[in-house]
Amino acid sequence: MHIHRVRVALILAVVTAWSDAVQAAPAQPTIGTKEGRMYPDFLLPDLDGGFGRLSDYRGKKNLLTHFASW
């Protein structure tokens, strides 16, 4: 009987922890270029022989301008 109670308590604890984790996890934003979505990351060459990602600038606001030199 005692063992049965311990088992039930353990199962409840696991279920509760799992439920809390699910509730605490924020929904991840959808990737896209529309307002409210997470702008798709890219890996492109820079002008100095290296490469860079947009995601390297996360943590600060970005003004990303697509432009042309023609």
């Binding site: 979505r37 702008y39 890219f42 970005n62 990303l64 301008t65 697509h66």
Partner: peptide
């Protein structure tokens, strides 16, 4: 950054996009 191949499928320029600190448009 240079996108000679237009990998980002840009259809028109210029396009200034405001993206917050988390990467959200």
């Amino acid at each position: 950054y240079v996108d000679a191949l237009n990998l980002l499928s840009v259809k028109v320029v210029p396009v200034p996009v405001a993206i917050d600190q988390a990467g959200i448009v």
